[in-house]
Design a protein around this nucleic acid. Structure first.
Lengths: 236, 236, 236, 236
DNA sequence: CGATAAACGAGACGGTACGTCGTGTCTTGAG
DNA sequence: CTCAAGACACGACGTACCGTCTCGTTTATCG
């Protein structure tokens, strides 16, 4: 389970009654994802999810406050499957995670659900917190891991101030996640290898340096495939 | 009017009977924004909009296909008010537009509507096209204008290949818009001057160069306030 | 239609909208009676009635406040079909109407509905008034008609005081209707010709005179069949 | 306890485990009556009764098959409290019992429950039998007792044929009970002393003799208060 | 005395119906 | 042909009870 559901009064208090079915939780989240694929966010109904899961509607409402909460939990499980590839350089690591993230956003259940729950969360503070805890914060691990790996490789300097390091991680996370989400869902254009390369180059070298980079020319900032040689970015 | 609504049978077709009330269009879009502020996307109903606008529901359906289309038109008008400030340098221009964009996203009607219509558009191709045409493509003008201005100032080189130039503009647009939207609506954290500066520095100079940039230290890449002097980015 | 339904704001006010379907009213009441036959009062649901009538649930709720009100109207139509036979003597008139009333109470839709709405009406004053207006008061015509006919025949004296006459009519109505209902629905025993005769004899002659009257002996208070001769009750 | 509840497998069967709480039975029936007063038949729920009685729902279902059975038992206890007053004459005895019966029907728990269980019983044979055994048959004792008392007094002749006597008792019972129930619950008008007198006069003397009897004139069929003299009805 | 067995409280469970609400269409009469 | 008004068919909502079940606990009688 990704995050807490409707909390029991006390976690350790002996309930004194029939315990909640553990199997139902899994069946419901599975059914929710299937319904998202078949129907999309708008046409998904809790009644339909209950039927698919072989569960009564009341069981569903006993555990989740509504459609948004349920869907957040259902898709959060998918986000937890994201991994940062170790491809030998920061640039290719970024490209890899961008493509994986884009692939995740390309799945119908994620595509239709993510923006919808974010939209809901703008007018629902508890939901906003749930989205943040279940999805956003959990994926920052990818940025942290990537940076550490790059620092070990010597591709990035070590930031001594932890607060500044955290600020930068947040910024980088918003930039990467934001760019991919915007490209994929708002602009609705493909996030392919080509785009991932150009985005990574911009992120690493900045706007000025990137100018003129295109698909035709050789990209000197990336190591030849298979040869993990010099890092493209030289701190100091 | 931002974009085409439900098209009349033929623009030049015989006038026939009573002409459509022009005042109604404006009243409806205004009422839509007011309803978004009061109720948010989910609780907004077309019946309520019609009542607020002093119009019958049929009048509304005669002109828009549904809630999403109506809201796209209603918020697109707001996006058209965005402007690129001319502050003397590319960096401060970007910072300025980032803050203006964030202010727009902070308005309740925009906040709740933008992600919602994007979510809808993931499973509705005509709506996706409408969002692209009415909102996304129209705002790329800001990137194009900013680049041209920077080129005039000598802050950015001129890209000779028009296709590559367009690709870069699209990329930069997704990065800027995506980062701001993600920060404001997904991470749900404030887009303030401080964040705008750090984001701009990252965008212009890249990840390596930005490392270590914090609120305390002087940012050499930015000109002293009020003195539009040397550009912060030196091509070549 | 038996009684007023959910009243329009003003009967003479031009509504200014689509008028209510007159056909729907009839279809709904018909469907209600059919559902009573098939399901009985308790299992009857408004959703089912709506389906049977080919009508939306909202249409039903727009016109009736609830299940009780609907059923009152549906069965009231049946009660209006009751008639007082003109058989030549007061005794046989009463026997006839008792048997007809019993037959009506034997129909499944009436049997299950009548006591149920009366039960509801004990805790619902508006419903009580509706039952009284739609069913109870309307059937008193039978008593009034029977008395007048008997007075014409000379079987009953004319009561000069209208108030006393009304009081007596109410009393007789409660005795006749109450006895038949109690026999048929509470005691749950058959109301057959035999019972009708004995009841009529009791009503006309009183308890003392009736004592000893049984199925075997000839009933001198009744004229021979087919011969409308002397009235069984002699005023003065 | 009025009537059998859900029967144990066998009364003589091995005691086995924990015996049923005797206190629970009483608490449940008491709670049922209280709930009838507060909520009425329709809004009464078994869950609520269980809560009021401080008992689990399962305990309740272990003993009664459903709401109707429970309520029959709960109100049957009240009907058993009815008594036939010994006032010295048949007429005043009847008037007395009519008023007591009316007072019982005026209690909120009885009023709302009696018609409801009768309504249920029209489509539920076992319930019908339970109503008959627990309520209807038990109250016929009042008629039998009244008749016997009248016969001792010489107000009524002795019927030699037991079958005919039983038929008459049933008829009289339906007439009295039916009239009072109809007046009180269907017509929803008060059963006061005045009405009880006029009803008794009609029952004893028949329709013709009753004509003209009103509140103003002296009622010769009743003995002066306090003087148990001549019977009002003279059998031959 | 300990074992056995049923009753008990608590409350989750699969169902079913509720009465309301929003959607998008329709049917009126007025303009 | 448009418009305001509002009825209409449809379908989902979230809630309430139903009657059953599954727990852990209690309270008897029996061996």
């Amino acid at each position: 389970m990704v995050a807490g559901m409707q909390s029991r009064s006390t976690p350790s208090a002996r309930a004194g009654g029939r315990p909640r079915s553990a199997a139902a939780d899994h069946a419901i989240l599975e059914a929710t994802r299937a319904a998202l694929v078949d129907l999309g966010w708008t046409k998904l109904t809790l009644g339909d999810v209950a039927t698919r899961a072989g569960v009564a509607k009341t069981t569903l409402y006993r555990r989740w406050a509504g459609k948004s909460e349920l869907v957040v939990d259902a898709v959060a499980e998918l986000f937890d499957e994201l991994e940062l590839p170790d491809s030998g350089s920061l640039a290719t690591d970024i490209e890899g995670v961008v493509l994986r993230f884009a692939a995740l956003l390309g799945r119908p259940e994620t595509k239709t659900a993510l923006m919808a729950v974010v939209a809901e969360s703008t007018t629902d503070a508890p939901l906003r917190e749930r989205v943040r805890a279940s999805i956003v914060e959990r994926q920052k691990r990818l940025v942290l891991e990537g940076r550490q790996r790059a620092q070990v490789r010597g591709e990035l300097p070590v930031e001594p101030d932890p607060a500044a390091a955290a600020r930068t991680a947040d910024l980088v996370f918003d930039v990467i996640a934001g760019a991919v989400v915007h490209r994929a869902l708002v602009s609705a254009e493909p996030v392919d290898t080509e785009w991932a390369r150009r985005f990574t180059a911009l992120l690493l070298s900045g706007l000025a340096a990137t100018a003129g980079t295109g698909p035709a020319g050789p990209d000197l900032s990336r190591p030849p495939a298979g040869s993990p040689t010099r890092p493209p970015v030289q701190p100091h």
